[in-house]
């Protein structure tokens, strides 16, 4: 493991923000850091960046404590987006890359290349205050990656983006991973994490409650599921006659059914066929991250953890 977060503790007055938080990230991995607002995600990232000091515990990269590393090791996209409002986009990107030691000519060239790939080459000459929120977010993302950091720490990078820009950002994530960058991003959007991450950590009240490779985390609850889609009556009344089958997520397209006790998946399929339903889709599935999260945390990720103080958007 290359990025090791080990036993982080942090209090803000009476509030415990981190309570022995620990996880590891392999090199070149896209890692999801999942939790409700206030769970400790932002505080962890700020400690990794050296913006905050931990009360106890360490963050190391390649065996060196993060605060002893050059700041250019990390690229950071804060949850609270912000740019200099009256400064031109290209000038801002060159300025921030310059703080990380990148020569201005190269920074300008690379910034234009990133703007092109985000279909935003016309933004370079505009002032930040003239940009939409989505475009400002793209510019901030470029500011975080421009100096080619080894580790990217992204705090809720997909929040507030439209589907087109979410897709562009996802592509960028995967490309950065392919270039050998380690990408850690926090989110409470479980479906985004499922689509992108090789490994995740679910954090609640300053502790990791589940973590590891995505598949292991999804199987960690021991629950078994099938996903089924039938033509006609989506309520699937015949399921009520199958002992141990429980619909945990009903949907017009497909439903997720949990198998309890000794019930096997093929018994559900047989019951559907026996009831005359036309089965369009059937799969044996692991629980979704959303379900794992609910199991482990006991409430949806959208709810606040109500732990950390107001520290500029989550802790």
């Amino acid at each position: 493991m290359v990025l090791v977060v080990d036993g982080l503790h942090k209090r803000f007055g009476p509030v415990v923000a981190l309570d022995g938080l620990a996880f590891e990230v392999a090199p070149g991995q896209v890692f999801g850091f999942l939790g409700a607002n206030g769970a400790g995600k932002t505080t962890t990232m700020r400690i990794a960046l050296g913006i905050l000091e931990a009360d106890a515990g360490t963050v190391t990269w390649m065996g060196t404590e993060s605060r002893r590393l050059p700041r250019s090791t990390f690229g950071y996209l804060p949850e609270e987006r912000g740019l200099y409002p009256r400064m031109r986009v290209l000038d801002q990107l060159v300025f921030f890359a310059g703080l990380h030691g990148m020569p201005p000519d190269r920074a300008r060239r690379e910034a234009l290349a990133w703007l092109r790939r985000f279909r935003a080459e016309d933004l370079g000459g505009r002032r930040a205050e003239q940009l939409s929120k989505g475009n400002q977010q793209k510019v901030q993302f470029i500011a975080a990656v421009l100096h080619e950091p080894a580790v990217l720490l992204m705090d809720e990078p997909f929040t507030g983006l439209d589907p087109v820009n979410v897709a562009l950002l996802r592509e960028a994530f995967l490309e950065l991973r392919d270039r050998g960058r380690t990408v850690v991003f926090s989110t409470h959007q479980m479906e985004v994490a499922e689509a992108l991450c090789e490994a995740v950590a679910i954090v609640d009240r300053g502790r990791v409650v589940a973590g590891g490779p995505l598949r292991e985390v999804r199987r960690s609850t021991g629950r078994r599921m099938v996903r089924i889609s039938v033509a006609g009556d989506h309520r699937m009344p015949w399921l009520a006659r199958v002992p141990g089958a429980r619909v945990i997520q009903a949907g017009m397209d497909r439903a997720t059914v949990e198998l309890e006790g000794a019930l096997e998946p093929d018994e559900v399929l047989a019951a559907a066929v026996g009831a005359g339903a036309r089965v369009l889709h059937f799969e044996v599935a692991d629980p979704s991250l959303e379900q794992v999260f609910l199991d482990r945390v006991g409430r949806p990720a959208e709810q606040e953890a109500h732990l950390a103080p107001d520290l500029g958007g989550g802790a």
Binding site: P78, E80, G82, Y84, L99
Partner: peptide, 16 residues
């Protein structure tokens, strides 16, 4: 202004 405009977070991650 840097704090309220939230550009401060980018700054402190890039420079001491």
């Amino acid at each position: 202004a840097e704090k309220s405009g939230r550009v401060m977070e980018l700054l402190v991650s890039a420079a001491t």
